[in-house]
Design a protein around this nucleic acid. Structure first.
Lengths: 140, 140
DNA sequence: TATAATTATATTGCATACAATATATTAAGG
DNA sequence: CCTTAATATATTGTATGCAATATAATTATA
């Protein structure tokens, strides 16, 4: 039997796709504790770091567009974690800012990264290698 | 400034999630040519290889459940690429089988893997390394 | 400076994902 | 043989993702 480029096990992209979903699934019990979905969690990460950001910049950080972000940001606003307000200098821009409640949530999220790492089944070196390869791909 | 485990750039899982979506997006122009989405494409891959499979086994191959697969398989059936029929031995099982038209589609898909690889921005060694790491994670 | 081009979000429609639940069929145990 | 447990799909509801389009504000230009 010769090599078949269309066999699932010969794909690089499939384990990437499958791993990504499996890992997000592993986050769920931890994220449930703080009431966030994975996409909401990474959005909050950007805001924990930057405090303020517009939708376009946020989308560039997360590789997401307004079709995904607009409803998600409305939800985070309804939860009281962020505010949404048009910029006075340029009304096209929507300024997303973290609230006190949003800041406070960071305390509760603090332990999540470590708990996640410990259930990944990769050692230090492998994690570093994977991190490097994925980021190289992303820069393309 | 000390290390912050909750910074987006310190995450391993985020580039995994982002890469996965970016790669699926890169497939789109190629998959449009043969009228499939990415999820439909990997489903067809399993069927090109196995010819026949039930929903449970398919789900184990693809890491997907019936909530995702049932509507997807109905669509592939409507497109004439597969058939769906209950097993006579055990009526709980739904046998998914590839049709002539489904087989024929493989010819048109043949060039996709190579064209994808060439736009990945990784060399041979890196692709092998990434493949190994992702599959190790998946086996967890 | 009126108009066209550009930019930033929002909306719509379609296709996943997935948890939770429901349904139908078969297997197991008393 | 009858009831209960287990198994396989299907359905429902919620939350993305993303392409395509619409809208509103700003900028560039004839």
């Amino acid at each position: 039997m010769e090599y078949d480029a269309l066999k699932l096990e010969n794909q690089l992209c499939f384990p990437l796709y499958a791993c990504s979903r499996e890992v997000v699934k592993k986050y769920k019990p931890y994220l449930d504790e703080i009431g966030l979905t994975y996409t909401q969690y990474i959005t909050m990460m950007v805001l924990w770091e930057k405090k303020t950001v517009n939708v376009k910049a946020l989308g560039e950080c997360l590789y997401l567009d307004s079709g995904t972000l607009t409803p998600l940001l409305k939800k985070l606003e309804a939860m009281g974690l962020i505010s949404r307000e048009r910029s006075k200098e340029d009304e096209r821009n929507l300024i997303v800012a973290i609230t006190k409640k949003g800041e406070a949530l960071k305390e509760q999220a603090k332990t999540i990264p470590e708990r996640m790492m410990s259930c990944l089944n990769l050692n230090e070196d492998e994690i570093v290698a994977l991190y490097g390869l994925l980021n190289k791909m992303l820069r393309a």
